[in-house]
């Protein structure tokens, strides 16, 4: 049942528990319990809203930063990551395979703010060898949802 619940709420976290139970052909209480269980086990870590900020008057700058580091004795990648992800302006931190070590996704109000974070906070960290900052120009698709397109049902109303 867990996989089925997750498959639905991954795309629609606001669905009524009652509707969800009907869709899955499961008992409502059982579904609610399962969700509570998964929250406790940190399988479900949050319920966020996918916002297309471009359609608001709010100015936002998103940057993707490649970070190369040398992990130091007694301080593996995890410790280093923690020193980065604790900053509230950091949206995501991933450990990567390949040419660099961390991807850091950062959200700021202006480019200057992002630049300042990189030069004042990220780059000076002891283990950081180099950073490369890429600014996001436009989001087409995020979390599996196409942002730039409005869905329209173009089917005829009645067909055989």
């Amino acid at each position: 049942m867990r996989e089925k619940i997750l498959a639905v709420i991954e795309k629609n976290s606001r669905i009524d528990i009652r509707d969800l139970a009907i869709l899955l052909g499961e008992n409502e209480v059982a579904v609610a319990n399962e969700i509570a269980e998964m929250e406790k086990e940190h399988i479900i870590c949050g319920y966020h809203t996918l916002i297309n900020w471009e359609n608001t008057s709010e100015e936002k700058v998103v940057a993707l930063i490649e970070v190369r580091v040398t992990p130091q004795r007694g301080m593996g990648f995890d410790k280093l990551a923690e020193r980065i992800y604790q900053y509230s302006e950091v949206n995501a931190v991933y450990l990567m395979s390949g040419a660099y070590d961390f991807t850091v996704i950062l959200e700021g109000k202006t480019m200057r703010q992002v630049a300042q974070f990189v030069s004042d906070k990220l780059a000076p960290l002891d283990s950081v060898l180099s950073t490369a900052t890429h600014f996001v120009l436009k989001k087409y698709k995020d979390h599996g949802t196409i942002l730039c397109d409005e869905f329209q049902d173009e089917r005829m109303l009645i067909t055989p």
Partner: peptide, 26 residues
Amino acid sequence: PSGIRKFFDIVSEMKDAISLGVGEPD
């Protein structure tokens, strides 16, 4: 003519109708 056709003509006159009448995937 197909019985569906007959009903289709009535439905298409109604602009703001919503449908549960399609025979194709969404």
